[in-house]
Amino acid sequence: MIEVLAALQPLVIGAVLIWSARIKLFSRHAAAIANRSALVRLIGQRRALPAYRVLGGIELTLGALLLLPPALRLEAIAATGLAVGFLAYLTYARRVAPTSSCGCLSAQSTPVSGRSLTRAGLLVAAGALAVLATGGWWTALAARPLTGAAVLLAELAVVVALSPELDAAWLLPLRRLRAQLTHPLRGGSGVPLLATVQQLQLSQSYRRVAPLLRSDVREHWDDGDWRFVGHAALYQGRPVTAVFAVPMTDPEPDAVRVAVVDDATGQTLLSLAGTPQPAGPRLAVVPA
C-alpha cells in the first residue's frame, strides 16, 4: 500500500501545482492578487507581480515534469523543496501580514489561515513520500485502479477542504442547501431565529462587540435551553468568530452572553457575561 501511495504522490502534487500556476500565469486578476499578497511586504510592490509570474512558471514546469514520464526522483525532491518554500512563505505571511491574501489556488482574496498552512504541510509530506517511489504513477494506477482512484480522490478532497479560497465552489453551496433543508429562520426548538437575533441585538453584550462584527448570522445551533449564534468578526487584526449564547427560556436581553474565539487556534480571546456588574471597571473593546 505504501508503494502505491508513494507512486501516486507526483500525480497529486503535479495537479495542484498546475492548478496554482494557472492562476498566476493566465488569470486577468494576477496583478491584483500579487499586490494583495505578502510578496509586497517581502520584496516590494514593483517586484511582486514579476515574482508571482516566475513562481507560476516554476509551478507549471515542475507540475508537468511530475505528470509526464519518466518518473525521476529528482523531480520529487524538487517538489518537496518547493512545498517547503511554500510553507515558509505562508508562515512568514501569517506572521508579518496576517490580512494579506494567500494567492495560491484562486483569485479569491483569502488571508493565510491554519488551513492554508496545513495544506502546505500536506504537500511537504506528499513530496517526501514521492521521493520513496520506485515507479511511475501510471504504473501504480494501472496495477491497482480502484485503490489508486480512491487514494487520489481522497487526497484531492483533502486539498480542496484545506483551501479557503475554494470555499465558494463547494462549502457555500452546501450551506445554502442546509439552509433550504433545515429552514434556519424557524429554528430547531420552535423559537424563531429572528426572535433570537432581536433579543441579542438589544443586549449589552452585542453592543459591546458590535464594532468587531464583519458578517450577519453565519451559523446557529441549539444546546439545551441555549441557542448559540455565530458571527464572523475581526479582533486585534485576527479573524475570529463572535459566538452569542442566547437563553431560549429567558427573553431578557441582559441574559445574552458572548465569547470571541480565534478562528485559527480555537482560543477564547474575550468573554462577556450577560448581566453587567453594577460597579467596578468595565472591559474595553477596541474596534479593529
Rank of each mutant, 00 (worst) to 15 (best):
R119M: 08
R46K: 06
L117D: 04
G56E: 06
L67Q: 07
S101N: 12
A120D: 10
G81V: 08
R73K: 00
F86Y: 15
I58K: 00
L49K: 05
S101V: 11
L90P: 00
G103V: 08
A64Q: 02
F86R: 05
G85P: 10
L117H: 02
A97L: 14
R115I: 04
L87R: 04
Q45K: 10
S37K: 11
L123D: 04
I58M: 06
L62N: 00
I77K: 04
G81T: 05
V84M: 08
L90A: 02
A64M: 03
I43D: 08
L60I: 04
L62A: 05
P69W: 14
L67S: 05
C102V: 11
S106A: 12
I58V: 10
C102Q: 08
L39S: 09
V40F: 12
A125Q: 10
L42Q: 11
T91K: 00
P98G: 07
A120P: 03
R46L: 05
R36S: 14
T61R: 01
G63S: 02
V112A: 00
P111W: 02
S37E: 15
R53D: 02
A78M: 15
G81F: 11
R46I: 03
Y89V: 03
L82M: 03
G56L: 08
G81M: 06
A76P: 13
L66R: 04
P70G: 13
Q108L: 13
A76E: 14
R41F: 15
T61C: 11
A125V: 15
I43N: 07
V124L: 06
L65K: 00
A93L: 02
R73N: 04
L66N: 02
A97V: 13
S100H: 08
G44N: 09
T80Y: 12
L72R: 02
G85W: 13
L66H: 00
R47A: 11
G103S: 10
A71R: 07
L68A: 13
G63P: 03
A51V: 14
L123F: 05
T99H: 08
A71I: 05
R47V: 09
V112W: 00
A64R: 03
L82R: 00
V112R: 00
L39F: 11
V112C: 01
R95Y: 14
A93G: 01
F86W: 14
S116F: 13
L62F: 11
L55M: 10
V84L: 10
I58E: 01
R119Q: 02
A76Q: 14
I58G: 01
P98R: 05
G63V: 05
L68S: 09
G114T: 09
R36M: 12
